[in-house]
Amino acid sequence: MTIRSTKHAFGAVTKTFHWVMALLVISVFSIGWYMDLLPLGMEKLEWISRHKSLGITVLALVILRVIWRVSEPSPHELGKLQIERLAAKAGHLGLYLLMFAMPLTGWTMSSAANFPVSVFGLFTLPNLVSPNQELFETLRTVHWALSWAVAGLVGVHFLAALKHHFWDRDATLRRMLPGKLEEN
């Protein structure tokens, strides 16, 4: 497996980004919903800490991922119809935007609530805005609405991968799996 992607195959770095971030996004999403249901207490605060730290990790990784992505070729979409390929591009763009928007709205809403973000207790991020209850409530709603967008798009992404694998029987899913370079 090569480090860099080619026009036909994903490289090791991109595959690693994809799967590590998939795990992270699913974790942060699940923690987010779980912590929201907990009554105020130590346990809730512990999960909020983890949610924030992992969310900022997503932000850091997506920045690196975008830098990496624009510096290497991307394999062609394998959809047969142009509309399919366009939909794939739009879906991926949406996922990238959400990987930025979720942590950024979370960080900003923490700032507005005067609850600065500590990353794994190692360092504290600066507040992006001054404390503002109204802004906090707006951002909380936006963050919540976007979490549904994440669930929706990740669901479509997952189903599309299965559709390519079992229906079209192409390499879309296989070429993202770890292991040897799959030429297509």
Partner: peptide
């Protein structure tokens, strides 16, 4: 300090 971050 809350969740490892200072607040005022």
């Amino acid at each position: 300090t809350q969740l490892g971050a200072e607040f005022e």
